[in-house]
C-alpha cells in the first residue's frame, strides 16, 4: 500500500539484498515454469515450436512495448500515472480500416500509410486529452477506447472482413534463415526499442519525465511534449500490430479489445525485472514471451485453455506480491 516512504534509513541497507532476491525470485518463477514445460511438454523445445511462440508473441509484443512507453513517460501511479486503455480498441479499428481499404482495392502502401495515420490520430486524441486538457489518463483513454471500439463496429458491423495483399502474404509465409518474418519482426523491433530506450538520450529523458516530472521540467525538459509523444507512439504501435494481426488471421475480426488485459499484464509484469520497478524493454519482452510460452506449454500438455487466464493471473499476483517486499513501504 502507498503509505509513503515510512521505512527509515535502516530499510536501505537490506533493500539492496531484498531487491536482488525478488528479481531473482521473479526470474526463478519464470524459469521454473519453463523448465517444467521442457521436462513434461512434448515437443516444447523443438526449434519449430519455439519460433512458433516467438511469432505468436509478435503482436502482443508490439502492443506491450507501446504500453510500456506510455507507463515510462507517464509514471506508474495507479490512478494518475500513464496508461493507455485504448490500445487494443485502436488496434481493432486499425485492423478494420486496413482490411476494408484493401478490400476497396487500395494498394498496400496507401493502406498501411492510412492505417498508421489512423493509429497516430487516435494516439494524438489521447495526448490532447491527457496533456492538453489534463484529463486523467485512465479516464481519457477509457473514453477513447469506447469511441475507437464503436468506430470499429460501425465500420465492420461486427463482421469478419477478409483481406489479402502481397504484404500480408509476405508477412504470413515469408522466411529468412528458416525463421518467419513475424518472428524477425519481433526480434528487430525489440532490438530497436532497446537501443532507443536504454542507449539514447531520448530514452533517458523519457524515464526522467515519468520518474519525476517537476524535476524534469526544472531541468529544462519538454515534459508535455514527451508525454504527448508516448501516446502517439502507442497509437502507432497499435497500427503496426493491426497489420500483423490481419496477416495472421487473413482478416480483421471483432473482439480485439479482449487483448487489453494481456497487454496490461505484459507491460506491468515486465516492471518486475527492473531494479526500480519501471517498465524496461527487456522485461517487457520477457513477460510477453513468458505469456506466449505459458499458453503454448498448456496446449502441448493438453490442459484446457480455460486454465491459461487463471494461471496467468495467479502468476502476476505471485510475482508482484514478491516484489512488494522489496519495495517495502514505498510499494
Amino acid at each position: 500500500m502507498a503509505s509513503a516512504s515510512a521505512s527509515g534509513p535502516k530499510g536501505l541497507a537490506g533493500r539492496g539484498i531484498a531487491t536482488f532476491a525478488v528479481r531473482a525470485g521473479a526470474f526463478g518463477a519464470f524459469v521454473a515454469v519453463i523448465v517444467y514445460f521442457i521436462l513434461f511438454a512434448p515437443g516444447f523445445t523443438s526449434p519449430f515450436n519455439i519460433f512458433n511462440v516467438v511469432e505468436q508473441s509478435a503482436i502482443l509484443g508490439v502492443l506491450a512495448f507501446g504500453m510500456a512507453i506510455v507507463i515510462i513517460g507517464g509514471g506508474s501511479n495507479i490512478t494518475e500515472g500513464g496508461i493507455d486503455l485504448s490500445m487494443a480498441a485502436n488496434m481493432g479499428l486499425c485492423a478494420a480500416a486496413y482490411a476494408s481499404l484493401l478490400q476497396a482495392g487500395y494498394s498496400d502502401l496507401v493502406s498501411v500509410a492510412a492505417v498508421l495515420l489512423v493509429g497516430a490520430v487516435v494516439g494524438a486524441v489521447n495526448a490532447l486529452a491527457v496533456v492538453g486538457l489534463g484529463i486523467l489518463p485512465l479516464l481519457a483513454t477509457l473514453a477513447v477506447m469506447n469511441i475507437a471500439g464503436g468506430a470499429e463496429l460501425t465500420l465492420t458491423e461486427n463482421t469478419v472482413v477478409p483481406a489479402s495483399s502481397p504484404l500480408l502474404a509476405f508477412l504470413m509465409t515469408g522466411r529468412f534463415l528458416d525463421v518467419s518474418v513475424l518472428a524477425w519482426f519481433l526480434i528487430l523491433f525489440s532490438g530497436l526499442m532497446a537501443v532507443a530506450i536504454h542507449y539514447t538520450g531520448v530514452g533517458l529523458r523519457l524515464y526522467a519525465v515519468g520518474g519525476h516530472p517537476e524535476a524534469a521540467r526544472a531541468a529544462g525538459l519538454g515534459v508535455r511534449r514527451y508525454v504527448s509523444l508516448t501516446y502517439v507512439f502507442a497509437g502507432l504501435c497499435a497500427a503496426i500490430a493491426s497489420v500483423l494481426t490481419v496477416s495472421r488471421l487473413s482478416a480483421s475480426t471483432p473482439g480485439s479489445n479482449e487483448m487489453l488485459l494481456s497487454i496490461l499484464a505484459a507491460a506491468l509484469l515486465g516492471t518486475v525485472f527492473s531494479r526500480r520497478f519501471v517498465p524496461t524493454v527487456g522485461g517487457t519482452l520477457l513477460s510477453v514471451l513468458f505469456i506466449g510460452f505459458l499458453s503454448n506449454g498448456f496446449q502441448l500438455l493438453n490442459v484446457s485453455s480455460y486454465w491459461v487466464n487463471g494461471v496467468q493471473g495467479a502468476l502476476i499476483l505471485l510475482v508482484v506480491a514478491a516484489t512488494s517486499f522489496a519495495r517495502g513501504q514505498e510499494a
Binding site: M1, I78, L261, L264, A265, L268, S304, Y306, W307, V308, N309, G310, V311, Q312, G313, A314, I316, L317, V320, A321, S324, F325, R327, A331
Partner: peptide, 27 residues
C-alpha cells in the same frame, strides 16, 4: 488480502483476480 497483506497495487491485484475469475467461470 492481496492489497493490504501482500501489498500488491490495487490495479494489479484486482487485474489478477479478474483473470482468475474468468478461468474459474469457464472451468
Amino acid at each position: 488480502i492481496l492489497v493490504t497483506r501482500l501489498r500488491i497495487s490495487p490495479f494489479l491485484a484486482t487485474l489478477g483476480v479478474l483473470f482468475i475469475g474468468q478461468s474459474t467461470q469457464q472451468l
